[in-house]
Nucleic acid binder design. Sequence first.
DNA 1: TTGTACGCGTTATCAG
DNA 2: CTGATAACGCGTACAA
Lengths: 347, 347
Amino acid sequence: MSEDREVTIYDIARYLNVSAATVSRGLKNNPMISKNTRKKITEAAKTLGYQSNTFASSLRSRHTHTLGVLVPRLNSHFMSSVLAGMENAANRHGYNLIIAQSLEDVEKEKRNAATMFNKRVDGLLISLSYNTTDIHHLEPFFKRKIPVVFFDRIYPHEESTSVGINNYEAAYNITRHLAEQGCKRIMHLGGNLLRNVYQERLNGYRQALRDHHLPVSKKLYLTSTLSEQAGTEAARYILDLPPGERPDAVFSANDTAAVYCMLALKAAGLRIPDDIAFAGFNNDPISRVIEPNLTTMDYSGDSIGNTAATYLINHLKGISNLYTTDAITLRAEMVIRASSLKKKLRE
Amino acid sequence: MSEDREVTIYDIARYLNVSAATVSRGLKNNPMISKNTRKKITEAAKTLGYQSNTFASSLRSRHTHTLGVLVPRLNSHFMSSVLAGMENAANRHGYNLIIAQSLEDVEKEKRNAATMFNKRVDGLLISLSYNTTDIHHLEPFFKRKIPVVFFDRIYPHEESTSVGINNYEAAYNITRHLAEQGCKRIMHLGGNLLRNVYQERLNGYRQALRDHHLPVSKKLYLTSTLSEQAGTEAARYILDLPPGERPDAVFSANDTAAVYCMLALKAAGLRIPDDIAFAGFNNDPISRVIEPNLTTMDYSGDSIGNTAATYLINHLKGISNLYTTDAITLRAEMVIRASSLKKKLRE
DNA sequence: TTGTACGCGTTATCAG
DNA sequence: CTGATAACGCGTACAA
């Protein structure tokens, strides 16, 4: 029954005694084809078991309906939400996603960018690795005018757009919230300052401290990978501080570090929020499971992914032509939970 | 400087006064090319900014170095670990991943399978949607001998391999553990029985009950999507049972449902594990954050992804030709935590 | 060791 | 509305 050769538009053409060109047009709903022949073509395609060959098409038409997605890691709650959002948007518009992770390594990021380019993705969605210092490796895309959209961990570039949140403001607000709870020594667990998100969160934190006349001390600032282990180590650091210098609040740049820090401090007998208040970032599921529940910044990875992909696709379709340096800033909202509420205000 | 046209092997050929064929061979490290010309070719390629065009290559060579990955949802801890593992293996062997999610909908799964086929993936990695009843939509792959590897939610098929764990045994062991803790009325929160994983977990649970002469009652079995909401609803169900009929332990087929059920029961004043013990499945991060920590089955999504992808790639490379119905079964290990330890045994 | 010539399956162009 | 024909960029028999 089924043979080893592919079924091509030529087979359909021969079958119907029309030309391959007509078949091609019929299959693509080209307007200038008669209703009748189109119907015959689609039917024949089905009975012959025709499956279009995307390559041949891409080779000729020079676009692949494929978007490249390059992220630091696939396995975090935030990132998998982003990917889910992107996949949704892409799928809805007939695009596919080809996904790779840099594992926080520039070199891998470079290699991945190169393969994405070779696969001729129509556009690139990228969130930078921890130690990326420049974006020379994206030059091929810029040169060929292949649109690049940065999301979350962005990089200023005049011909690209970026999608994220206002990290400065978010950090400012959450730090202010802690200050308003009466916290005097607020510590910050931050990430690598090469990445805008962490730099901005640090800036917002600092400004809030200054505005509330609270100490901005190097002893109250730790930078790390914000992993589980980093959270645990931060707890160790805090416990090792002389009692008078211990923070009475911690604002962590992500929920993971916050939660594992909390767990370790609780194990050491500290009470949260009475001895030390906590705020995180991301609204990760664990923030609603830890006790007391973690105050955090909620912003939807799904929306970020959706927005970034949709923007890119609109751009590709020529709907939006706004090459813009302006970033698309999505809403982030503070979710106040028990971990940050100091007793004095609760009564 | 840079022009709008692609740099092709012809440009390199012209530049070096050789034939395109020579360039093609030189670029692919074809052994029968002189060291000298090869060097000149690779150099010229670099200076001209040549980037190989994967399509043209794929069109000719009929393989894409791309694997299709089709999953129910992208945004779960387990699945994102699987993807991370796959990406690792793929990247290591020079393959790329094109990823789509079915959102638990067969129809979307079908459409996605079709596009994967059209994109001519070299192989397919798939975990079935909730309501998939047959795999007719994979016929195109089977017909064209494109290898398909099932993982986690598998489907028996004589020409495909599947990668997963022994769900029956795992569920049996964890249920037995609860029984050995002295639990008499053990409830099970299960998933859709169309999917082998949930059917097998149910079977293991039932057999363990029988072996310990414990009641196997329909009142002690709930089937759901195992979402957060489903967990909360299960708690409602438990609380609404007449006191005498309430379970004294719950084995949930995933951690999410277990944790949200625990939270709701705790809020209602039940003590865990004293009033009701708990065990989950997956070793999701939340299982280590909930209090008391959740006893669960640990199996690595990363390993499953890695194994499935590596197996598929080896198959493609002809290293392993074993078309086999036999499943690859990975290790799953029980992690005993406080939530399942009844008081009597703790003292 | 290198060059010639053709084909992969589709779409764009230009006629009709 | 439809047909013929030429690309698209690369790989590979076959010939040199």
